[in-house]
Each structure stands twice: as C-alpha cells, then as structure tokens.
Design a protein around this nucleic acid. Structure first.
Lengths: 198, 198
DNA sequence: ACACATGAGACAACCGGTCGTATTATCTGT
DNA sequence: ACAGATAATACGACCGGTTGTCTCATGTGT
C-alpha cells in the first residue's frame, strides 16, 4: 500500500471518529486521546494530520455534512417530477435514522453551533460554509418545487430554505430532551405540508 | 449578617456566574475553578452548595429561565387587549438584547440541549422542565390571542407555541455563526406576522 | 463546649500540545 | 541498477496546566 494512501486512510478514520464523538459528547467533552485510541493512531501523529484540535473540528464539520448534501441531491435528482415530494422523502428518511439511534446525537452542525459557534473562529467559518452549502441545495429544491407549482411563490426559496433549516435544528434540540420524533414530524408537517403550500 | 443569608447569597452568586460561563463557553468548556474564582468562593466549598457539577448545571438551568418567564408574563399581563402584540414586543426586546451582546451566547437552554441534552439525565430533566414551563406560558398567550381573534384557531395553541420555540432556537444558532439578527427577525415575521394569523 | 458550616489544599486523572528520536520513503551519483 | 545521502513522516514519552472530587483542620454560632 502506498504511503499517501495509508495517510489518507488514517486521516479519514480520525475524521469519522471525530464525527461520532463530537456528536455524542460535544467538542469540549471529547478528548483527542479517545479518538486516537479508537483508530489506533499515536498521539504524536495527530499533529501530522491536523494543525490543532480546532482545525480538526473544522475539518470534521465538512466531513460530516458532505453525505447529507449528497443524499439530498440524490433525492432531488431521482424524482424530477416532484421536488417537494423529494424533500419530504429526504426528511422522512432522516427521521427514521434518528429514531433508529434512539434520538441521541442529533445534528453535529446544530450542536457545534451552540457549543463553539461563537468562540472558535475557525469552526465558525467551517459551520458557515457547511450550513450555506446545505441551504443552497435545499433552496434549489424549493425553487424547483415553486416552478412545479407545489410551493407558494410569494416567498423566496432562500427564505423558506432558511426557515426550514432553522426550525429543523430547533426540533432536533427538542427531540433530544423529549426522546421523541414528534417535534421533527411537526416541523415537516407545518412547513412542508402547510406553510410552504401555494 | 446571618449565616443562612450569606449561604444563600453565595449560592446565587455561583448560579449567576454559572449562567454566564455556561452560555459563553458551554458546559464542558467551563471549569468549576473559574466560576469559584469569579465569586471568591473556595473550591472546597462548592460541594457544600451543590452535589456535583451536574447537579449545579441542573440548578443553573432553572435559575436562567426564571427571569425570561417572568418577563414574558409581565408583557402578557400589561397588555390585556392584545396578546399577540405582547408576544411580538417580548421577542423584539429579546432581539435588542441579543444585538447588544454582539450575537454571542444565545440561549442557555438551546446550547445545553445540544451539548448535554442526551448525555446527562439530571440536566435533561431540568431542561425538560424549563422548556415546558416556558412553553406553557407562551401557549397561554397564544390561546389568549386566539380568543381575541388575532391568531388562527384551526391549530392548537400548544402546537404553535412549540413551533415558535423550536424555530426561535434554530434561529439563535444561525445568529451565532452569522453574527446577524436577521434569522431572529425572519422567525418572528414568518410565524407571528404570517403563519399564525387567521 | 459542642455541632457543624466553611475553606485551604491534596488528589489522581486527564487535557491539548511538544519534542527528540526512530523509521521509512525519496532522491542522487555513479 | 544499486548504494548512500537526504528528507519526510510515525511515534510515544513527556510537558505544564487543569479537571472534578474529596479530606480534614479551622473557625463560628449558640
């Protein structure tokens, strides 16, 4: 195995573990040691991969959001005839996944926005970028639905995308303490099923 | 000064500092030492006031939410003729306060729900109680507005109160990373100014 | 004089980060 | 093609500082 491949492999293992631990215990609640132990990478090597814990956090954020964007994009592509339906299906699947994990964790972006969104400049920038990338794609889907006539046109797609993301994030917080998917379902029903309709 | 009074004073100072630090740096990001230093209470004394850091966190949560409930209640009482207007005024004042603090901190409840809402059972219970108390009051205000005809009646006051709280929490997260009150204003405008209207 | 709240410090565990060294890969000269 | 020089990376012991918790001597009110 070539060297660069092994290095890249280690890097991704660290990022993957970072996602898991940061979601479960937060940024300050997670030590580098436990991440390193979990993927069998020595302490000293960490700083060959990342400049600091903070830089690592910023990379973890991007590593986390990529699959969500890919998945939403896939839903939007595959159902060309009904963008609103695709968005609904996407969120329905998210709900199923969250139910599977017993309502633990929630969304890494939301959790880190609350914990370090205003204290770590590096992570703040990464969070901005991640949220914006996600919002832009959601906005695209909503605009498509507007053209198809399934979503009202007197509000901008950007405004509705932002509103959906924010309500969803708040619903995830409620989910965590109520151990119930009711807030998530209520979010989808009120916005996608009612407020956004023409 | 009597002893019990001094004890109560120390306790409240600790709780007040706890609110400030937990909002600013999160639960795991805040050490007991800095809280104790800030109020000049020796480290060893802490466990005479609270059973553990976790128990302390649970008490801080309740100590934090009380003034918000009192303030909202005051707005609702003083403007008996227009409950919806009172709620709007209340949130407008919150926005002004958040702008004053340069969009830092946000809401302790939201931040702690994300960080430890699913890991600390004691704090989870406290968060549940705090959010429910807040929601119940908001629900009362919305029900009043329904009777006054300024809010739609085909949705329950409870559902709208929950939706408002969740969207507000999500908007607070966005505020933190975008350093802007736009998400907060958009939350109020879309819900209180549009979706909730008859 | 006695019960008890208080407070200074001890404690082991852990934090993020550094450092010199050992190992490995890559390049060079012939 | 091969030996040797050089650069890059892997590694784990170790740093000073801090964590949450606990012990016990001191001080105080009654």
């Amino acid at each position: 195995m070539s060297k660069s491949t092994k290095k890249e492999l280690n890097r991704e293992s660290l990022l993957s573990q970072g996602v898991t631990r940061f979601i479960g215990q937060g940024y300050h609640g997670t030590g580098l040691q436990e991440i390193l132990d979990a993927v069998n990478v020595p302490k000293g090597s960490f700083y060959n991969y990342f400049g600091s814990k903070e830089d690592f956090g910023a990379d973890v954020i991007q590593y986390y959001i990529d699959p969500f964007i890919a998945q939403l994009a896939s839903y939007l592509d595959n159902s060309g005839t009904d963008a609103l339906g695709a968005i609904k299906c996407y969120f329905d699947e998210l709900i199923i996944e969250l139910e599977k994990s017993a309502f633990k964790g929630g969304c890494l972006l939301g959790n880190l926005m609350g914990e370090i969104g205003d204290t770590s400049e590096v992570c703040q920038k990464s969070l901005q970028s991640a949220v914006n990338r996600y919002r832009d794609l959601l906005q695209l889907g909503i605009a498509k639905a507007q053209q198809q006539g399934t979503v009202r046109q007197d509000k901008s797609a950007e405004e509705m995308a932002d509103l959906l993301i924010n309500t969803w994030q708040g619903a995830l917080l409620r989910m965590k303490i109520e151990k119930s998917s009711a807030p998530l379902k209520q979010c989808c029903q009120n916005l996608l099923g009612d407020y956004f309709r023409p």
